[in-house]
Computed example of a mutant assay.
Amino acid sequence: MPVRADDLPEAAAPSPPPGLVTVGRFDQRPGYSVNRPGGADSWLFTWTTDGAGRLMQGASGTRAGPGDLVVLGPGVPHRYTVAPDARRWTFWWAHCQARPAWADRLRPHLLGDRLYAVTPVPAGVRDRLEQAFRRMLADARWTGEGAPPAMEPGEPEGSDEPGGGRVAVAHGTAARELALCSLESIVLLTTATATAGGEAARPGVDARIRRAEARIAADPGAPHTVDTLAAGVALSPSRFAHLFTQQLGQSPMRALLAARLLHAARLLEATDLPVERIAVAAGFTSPFHFSRVFRQRYGAPPGAYRAGLRH
């Protein structure tokens, strides 16, 4: 029988006003818990760096360990606490109104009742996430005069003394937007790397092929070849080309061409770079070849494509 968050006996904790961006870092011991039988008016983002927490929302719940981003949507009764078997729970948290675009990125990680668990986040990006939260904490304190405050130095994880109490509220418009930009980078990093690392993200596609596809998409202008892509995932060129074509429905070089043309189209849309420079940036050695294949793909040569966007 599921335990609902609004059935729990603890006294209710207040929720921050929905229009504010509030960020902090807590290091809590067993006995710490927050209970909101009516839910919150804002979104709550938590990112665990040490120990473990238990978060429950409605009839859904999850355990949060190091590297896990857990997000609670507004309007649903929730409770969170140090996990029963943990000696501590060290975590960053932020209350805010989520930007609309974040919903699409979080949706694949929905557990139910507007509770999202983004995991596993690879260890290689966790330092960057830590820096993003520290930047968010500093920017939230900015008054708008002079330069934003410097980030505070970190504290060693697992220290004996409980920390916490480091909380900032972004009152000014600039401070609020800067803090949200840092949080957006956190959402992007966690959802992108967790999806890329999860075996269920692309059913039926070999993890090595997913990595090669991601490498093409991340840097389409690089001098990729079948040989270099195959070497990057420890496959022979022939085996790699066979698997790639079989599982993704197109050859590696056709996928690379499509990625380069998409990259070029975005550069035409977003910059005033000359067409020749865009061709080079997108990985084309011949501007004439670039113009021809771009027209085949988008129905107009690069210059006309750009001009059509500005009318």
Rank of each mutant, 00 (worst) to 15 (best):
L178V: 00
A179E: 00
A179P: 00
A179R: 00
L180G: 01
C181A: 11
C181E: 09
C181D: 11
S182E: 14
L183D: 08
L183H: 06
E184M: 11
E184S: 14
S185H: 15
S185I: 13
I186F: 13
V187H: 10
V187S: 11
L188G: 14
L188P: 13
L189K: 10
L189W: 15
L189V: 15
T191K: 08
T191H: 10
T191I: 10
A192G: 12
T193I: 04
A194I: 03
A194G: 05
A196V: 06
G198S: 14
E199S: 13
A200P: 05
A201L: 06
A201V: 08
R202M: 13
P203V: 07
A207F: 07
R208E: 08
I209R: 02
A212D: 02
E213D: 11
A214N: 03
R215H: 00
R215K: 05
A217F: 00
A217E: 02
P220A: 01
G221N: 03
A222Y: 07
A222S: 08
P223N: 02
H224E: 04
T225G: 05
D227H: 06
D227Q: 09
A230S: 08
A230T: 07
A230G: 07
A231W: 06
A234D: 15
L235D: 14
S236L: 14
S236M: 11
S236A: 15
S238M: 12
R239D: 15
F240Y: 12
H242K: 11
L243F: 10
F244S: 03
T245S: 12
T245G: 08
Q246W: 06
Q246K: 09
Q247L: 06
